[in-house]
């Protein structure tokens, strides 16, 4: 007689290969778009290539927030999965969606305290990792 855990594992749908392919297409599209925006900035402004990174990221974030607000982003993310989740688009969407969701609880208790609900972990461990790398680099360069 099989136990219930075995039965569930047998019946669970297997992960779809198409998810992998769509994630690749999604991620690639975001990357190509980012590169295109960056090239345009270098071409039509006085900014150098390394200076163009920041405005490019800002444009991608703005686009993501716009799509989130219009209710389109979550539908795209359902299709492209990790392809949109891993780039900065995922980070921007997590903040924007949390803010949108909390708007009825007001500016302070709603948006203010909830905007980093999902993105908070990324920031905390991003900063911690930066410190650790910084300390290692400091020791390496001064010894």
């Amino acid at each position: 007689m099989k136990d219930i855990n075995t039965i569930i594992q047998e019946k669970k749908p297997k992960p779809k290969l198409s998810n992998l392919i769509f994630a690749f297409i999604g991620g690639a599209t975001v990357s190509v778009l980012g590169q295109f925006i960056m090239d345009m900035i270098v071409r039509y402004t006085d900014l150098s290539k390394s200076e163009a990174v920041t405005p490019m990221i800002i444009i991608i974030i703005a686009l993501t927030c716009l799509l989130t607000g219009l209710g389109v982003y979550d539908k795209l993310a359902t299709i492209f999965g990790a392809g949109l989740f891993i780039p900065i688009t995922g980070f921007a969407n997590s903040m924007c969606s949390s803010a949108l969701e909390s708007k009825h609880e007001g500016l302070v208790y709603g948006i203010g305290s909830n905007i980093f609900k999902l993105a908070g972990s990324v920031l905390v461990y991003g900063v911690v990792a930066t410190y650790l790398v910084g300390v290692v680099r400091f020791i390496y360069e001064n010894l």
């Binding site: 669970k12 749908p13 992960p15 779809k16 998810n19 989130t68 607000g69 209710g71 982003y73 979550d74 795209l76 993310a77 359902t78 492209f80 999965g81 990790a82 949109l84 989740f85 688009t89 995922g90 969407n93 997590s94 924007c96 969606s97 949390s98 949108l100 969701e101 609900k117 999902l118």
Partner: peptide, 17 residues
């Protein structure tokens, strides 16, 4: 969705199950 899972506009690929 908001209480038990994630914000509604959060772009997450839901699990098949």
């Amino acid at each position: 969705e908001r209480q038990f899972r994630y914000p509604n506009e959060y772009g997450l690929q839901k699990k098949e199950v």
